[in-house]
Amino acid sequence: MKRTALFVLIGLFLLAPLASGPYLLSLLTTLLTFAYLGQAWNIMMGFAGQLSLGHALYVGLGAYVSAALSLFWGIPPILGVFPAMAAAALVGSAIGFLSFRFAVKGVHFTLLTIAFAEIARLTFQHLSALGGTGGLFLPVEARTGVDLIHLRGDPRMFYYVILAMAAALFLACRALMASPLGYRWQALREDPAAAESLGVNLLRVKLAAIALSAALTAAGGVFTAFFYNALFPDQWFGLGYSIEIILAPIIGGLGTLFGPILGAILLTPLGEAITAVTDGLGWQSAGIKPFCYGVCLLLIVKFLPDGIWPAIRKRLP
């Protein structure tokens, strides 16, 4: 049953571009981007129990590093993604190491992740070489053809790229969850002191979670940069973006593999539908989408704190 549902889902996603116009395609691309970013964030929070509210930092780093490499040195994103991921992993590891060394835990750790993201936002605002507050722009070319090396081409190409990324990350996370590292992450999440007494090296396991989550998030940032072509520090490093990233996995189900995907499938179209309705009625609707996201989040945390997917799974045969 579960397997069939999975195949149907994969089939739908594979065939979707054939039946969708440009609007639906861009909606689906956004949906998959949030599924991907949520999955990457979920490694750190859902698997290893470390709440980061600064994941925009890694999206922004990935985006800016790859965009700068492409703009100033002509290094295509297919190569630029590696230094981008490395930069994010390095920054994530540094934050992880500092928090471990100085025993910053719980709420304080979360505040630390916010603080670093905000510092990055303010720093990039002042980096005039990278456009500062004015933004950094990638040249927009004719949206046709398929150039995977430079990540230029048809919207359908972008759709399949992010679909492949999301699917690969899903499979990778499934393998990770069943690996020794995955179990050690869960031990860290459940009870660090008990985990340590069973020989789990907390520092190593925590750094692995943060570095991997950061690097994968940065890869998502590279994709997003070349999809939208315009980078602004306030948007790409902002707290609002960090919060948007965590919505899908929380609503879908923290620490589950399907959670981030299900959350994105539910949320993104909901947001679009609400915007469409209010626009259609001619209402002044700035803020309506995040407002509804807030209501959804509230209802989920209050009534289904484990998320929607675990509730569905329980009823599956």
Partner: peptide
């Protein structure tokens, strides 16, 4: 062991023990 027991509550009994066993055996 701990005076006040500290199981990993959201993991199964087998997974709890597996985490200890992973210390003795590297292969899954």
């Amino acid at each position: 062991t701990f005076q006040i027991v500290r199981p990993f509550p959201h993991l199964t009994v087998a997974e709890n023990v597996l985490i200890g066993a992973l210390h003795a055996e590297k292969k899954m």
